[in-house]
Amino acid sequence: MAKISLCDRCNFYAHTQLLVCAVHPYGPEWGVCSDFVSAELWKPDDPQSYDPAMESECGWHPIFTGKCPECRTPFSRMRLPPEQWRCKCCGWEDDL
């Protein structure tokens, strides 16, 4: 099957080894999927333009970056943002 990296984050992904998704059972052709619908519940407006050097007063927070501000470990975007942010790798906690 021709599963691509976006498949794991798509609403149509089947989460089974028997087929990739409901739209493309054997995976999208040519490694590109025009039917991708993000299953992520939160994300920065433009993750490609994120620049740590240009962080605003709150731009460092994981709700904007998706990563721990201390060790840069990514937080899951497949669940709603937590009320209390805590990194499982380094132990960083949000003081808010």
Score class of each variant (00 low, 15 high):
E70F: 07
M54T: 10
E55R: 14
P62A: 03
R9T: 10
W85S: 00
F75C: 06
K88D: 12
R77I: 03
H24W: 09
P44T: 08
G31W: 10
W60K: 11
E70N: 14
R86F: 00
W85P: 04
W42H: 08
E29W: 12
G27V: 01
D46R: 14
M54D: 15
P81C: 05
F64G: 02
M1K: 11
R9F: 14
M54F: 03
D94M: 05
K67S: 01
A2K: 02
W92Y: 02
G66P: 11
C10A: 04
C89F: 06
A14Q: 06
T16E: 09
K88V: 05
C90Q: 07
S49K: 12
D46I: 05
L19G: 04
P47Q: 10
V37F: 00
D35H: 14
I4D: 14
L18P: 00
S76C: 10
L6G: 06
P47R: 10
Q48T: 14
L19M: 14
R9M: 07
L96E: 01
F75G: 04
P82R: 08
K43Y: 14
A14P: 05
E55K: 09
Q84F: 00
D46K: 13
L41V: 13
A53C: 06
L19H: 08
D8Q: 13
L6N: 11
N11R: 15
H61G: 00
V32P: 00
W30F: 14
P47L: 12
P74F: 07
P44Q: 12
V37Y: 01
R77S: 09
N11P: 00
P47W: 10
H61A: 11
K67P: 00
C58Q: 08
G59R: 15
Y13S: 02
P62C: 03
P52E: 06
P44I: 09
S5M: 05
L96S: 09
F75E: 09
S5A: 15
A22C: 04
S49D: 13
C87V: 04
L41Q: 13
D8K: 15
L6Y: 07
F64T: 04
C87R: 10
G31Y: 08
M1E: 03
G31I: 01
Q17D: 13
V20I: 15
L41W: 02
W30T: 08
Q17Y: 01
R79C: 08
